[in-house]
Amino acid sequence: MSTLTLAVRDSSTMLRRNLLHARRYPSATLNLLLTPVMMLLLFVYVFGDAMSAGLGGSGADRSDYVAYIVPGILLMTVGSTTFGAAVYMAMDMTEGVIARFRTMSIHRSSVLIGHVVGSVLQSVMSVVLVGAVGVAIGFCSTDAGVLEWLAALGLVTLFSLALTWTAVGMGLSSPNAEAASNSAMPLILLPLISSAFIPAETMPGWLQPIAEYQPFTPAIETLRGLLLGSEIGHNGWLAVTWCLGLTVLGYLWSKALFNRDPM
């Protein structure tokens, strides 16, 4: 069997294992959706009127704020599910069966690839679910044609891939699930200091550059542009660069960590 066939075959076996876990314990996945959905409802219904005042354009109201916040919440959902992926990876590494995989003649990285592909699928499904909640409370895409929808899906997938490889690295570098949930905290916190809830320009000056150039903001602005027709500008290539960079670095980091001798 060629290396590639072996890699594909073993990785899909590992993916099946991950999906079995997810199917058997759906609550683990659904719990991760609670935060973004609560945030969405909280910001729209409790803060909505006040927040819409910050959107610029006079006469902006709650429905404008729904349109503004949903793209941000969708990518926050990606952060939240990949946070779960980091914890799950760390937990899985403490299982005896991982040692067994290491002594088998299989594609070495298949364990990781199974985790990543499983998590990206989960992530995209979660985005669809949270998106449905958004639509239910009044979000509608004003501008997107087929092409934009495809590009939006592509962006969400690529962003998930990038964050998942990073998360898997965080999981592998942690000795247990608790440590992983600490080191993966940025995946939850970064969306809070992005343009998800309020425009970056309205933040204090010292925070603006951080908010503007961290991975979430360019991705959120790009998604906003695709779905609502707002200006994308340099955010498009910034988002793609972040995604590709994190994917490559996360992959190399994870692979190196996994190939260390286990204790």
Binding site: L20, H21, R24, G96, R100
Partner: peptide, 9 residues
């Protein structure tokens, strides 16, 4: 020494 089985499935 410690069972190398997957407990979740």
């Amino acid at each position: 020494q410690f069972s190398a089985v997957d407990g979740l499935i």
